[in-house]
Simulated scan of single mutants.
Amino acid sequence: MKKIHNYFAIVFLFFALHAVGQTKDNKWTFGMDIAWVSYSEADKIAVGGKFINQTPRFSLAKYMFKNVVFVGSVSTAIGDNQTYTTFDGAARYDFGTSQNKVVPYALIGGSFINARILTPTLNFGAGSTLWFSPKYGLNVQLLYKFSEERFSSQRSHIMPSIGLVYSFGARDMNPRIWSSTR
Rank of each mutant, 00 (worst) to 15 (best):
I34A: 13
I45V: 13
P56T: 08
R57F: 05
Y63Q: 05
G48E: 15
F51H: 13
T55D: 00
K50E: 15
Y63G: 03
A46S: 15
A77D: 12
Y39Q: 10
T76A: 05
S59Q: 01
S75E: 07
V71C: 02
L60E: 04
F65I: 07
K62E: 05
F65H: 06
G79P: 08
Y39V: 00
V37K: 14
F51R: 12
T55E: 01
Q54M: 09
Q54K: 08
I34R: 00
F65E: 05
G49M: 09
T55M: 07
D33V: 03
F51Y: 14
D33Q: 08
D80C: 04
L60P: 06
V69I: 14
V37P: 03
L60K: 02
D43E: 13
V71P: 00
K66M: 02
G79L: 04
K62G: 02
F58L: 14
T55Y: 11
Q54S: 02
I45P: 03
S40D: 09
I78A: 11
V74W: 15
G79F: 04
L60H: 03
G49I: 08
I52N: 13
M64V: 14
T76L: 01
N53H: 14
K50Q: 13
A46C: 05
D43K: 02
V69C: 06
I45K: 09
V69Q: 09
I52R: 12
M32D: 04
V71G: 02
I45W: 14
A46W: 12
I45C: 02
A42Q: 07
M64P: 06
F51G: 04
I78D: 05
G72E: 01
F65L: 05
T76C: 03
F70N: 02
I34Q: 00
W36L: 15
P56V: 05
K62T: 11
S75L: 03
Y39T: 05
V68Q: 10
N53I: 11
F70E: 01
